[in-house]
């Protein structure tokens, strides 16, 4: 199958890129450092378990802005880079369809990022076993899982960007722009607030908090925070949602948000790439 041939060759190629591993090690290093230093803070929590979970949550908090950068760097050149240098002429001169290329590249870069995230969490797990009093298995698994999906989401976004533009510079610009929109802007302007303004001021409708929550949680970084909230007992101020609210604002829904974020960009990227002239 061509998809796997593309993925296999691309993985072999990416695996040998120093840049990709460097950014991976930075995240792993951060995690290790954080887990190690924050060990002192355990005594300030009500229970040891709460303290350990709080430290694990910090790993996610650090990862939230960092992992997208890692994923974007690892994947934004996947296709655009090949188009710029001309190696895409081999890729497309072989019996590969454009879809084989997008899916193959996505699989390969996802594997790279998955290995990086797994490596960071293995280090965290090692430290939990070695220097921590206990290992909260469920919170650990939930946080690892959500972080994993979060990272893959950005790989999909990066592949979509890479498939949609013809050169490196544009891929970098669009990647940077999207990072700003998805990770920086929501800090100051949660999408929920924008929707609320529009909903109440412009449309003159009565307040409808569930919709605003839903809108906010469509941003990956919010979906991540919300997704891990059941195991961290930490909710962002003013963002609590009643238990009886609809499923689509519940934490359990967040993996679906991520899946949409993975599929939709890839589909858009595919349609843009399918009709693109590669010369």
């Amino acid at each position: 199958m061509s998809t796997m041939d593309v993925a296999r060759k691309d993985f072999l190629d990416t695996r040998r890129s120093r840049v990709v591993w460097l950014v991976m090690f930075i995240y792993t290093g951060f995690v290790a450092l954080l887990m190690f230093i924050q060990r002192d803070q355990l005594e300030f929590h009500d229970t040891l378990r709460e303290g350990v979970i709080s430290n694990l949550r910090l790993v996610v908090v650090v990862g939230a802005p960092l992992v997208p950068i890692v994923a974007l760097v690892a994947a934004y050149l996947a296709i655009a880079g090949e188009r710029e240098t001309g190696s895409a002429k081999f890729l497309l001169g072989l019996p590969n369809t454009r879809r084989d290329i997008i899916v193959g590249k996505f699989l390969s870069r996802s594997l790279v990022i998955a290995l990086g995230i797994t490596c960071a969490y293995l280090v965290a797990a090692g430290l939990l076993v070695a220097v921590y009093p206990l290992f909260p298995v469920t919170p650990f698994v939930v946080m690892f899982g959500m972080m994993f999906l979060y990272a893959i989401t950005y790989v999909a976004i990066a592949i979509a960007i890479s498939a949609s533009v013809a050169n490196k510079a544009r891929a970098a610009a669009v990647g940077f722009g999207l990072y700003f929109v998805l990770n920086v802007l929501p800090l100051f302007m949660p999408p929920g607030d924008i929707v609320r303004k529009f909903h109440t001021d412009v449309l003159g409708a009565p307040e409808s908090p569930v919709i605003y929550h839903f809108a906010s949680q469509l941003v990956p970084v919010q979906a991540l925070t919300r997704g891990i909230s059941p195991v961290t007992n930490y909710t962002m101020p003013g963002s609590s949602v009643p238990e009886d609210a609809p499923l689509y604002v519940q934490p359990e829904f967040m993996p679906i948000v991520f899946c949409v974020w993975i599929v939709v960009p890839l589909v858009i990227g595919y349609y843009r790439f399918r009709s693109a002239d590669v010369s």
């Binding site: 072999l12 190629d13 040998r16 890129s17 240098t85 019996p95 369809t97 084989d100």
Partner: peptide, 23 residues
């Protein structure tokens, strides 16, 4: 049309290409 399969019968030496430096 669905041209990808046809390319298994074509050998291409393109112009202005680059190889995969790390392979």
């Amino acid at each position: 049309a669905d041209f990808a399969t046809t390319r298994s019968r074509i050998g291409v030496l393109p112009d202005g290409y680059s190889l995969y430096d790390r392979l």
